[in-house]
């Protein structure tokens, strides 16, 4: 499993308790996790998906992006 793959999965696990649309968020995560990309690209893809989603899903994705950034920032600092 690539780093990016693991980052998005860990991020999903952390934000799941806070998500309003957990099923939809899981689907999005599965799709993106399937294509292992660099974290910046994952964020960009999530942003492009957000545009077409309902407002509450958009917030869930926004939280997911935030968490990915936290993880990436944490990895860089260690």
């Amino acid at each position: 499993m690539t780093d990016s793959h693991s980052i998005i999965r860990v991020a999903f696990q952390r934000v799941a308790p806070h998500a309003s649309n957990i099923q939809r968020l899981r689907e999005i995560t599965e799709v993106i996790a399937g294509n292992s990309e660099a974290p910046e690209e994952i964020v960009a893809r999530l942003r492009s998906i957000m545009v077409h989603e309902d407002i509450t899903v958009r917030t869930d994705i926004r939280i997911l992006i935030n968490e990915i950034r936290h993880i990436v920032a944490g990895n860089k600092s260690t």
Binding site: V15, P17, H18, S20, T59, I63
Partner: peptide, 8 residues
């Protein structure tokens, strides 16, 4: 504090 979304 215990709110689902706000907690995040």
């Amino acid at each position: 504090l215990p709110g689902k979304r706000l907690r995040y």
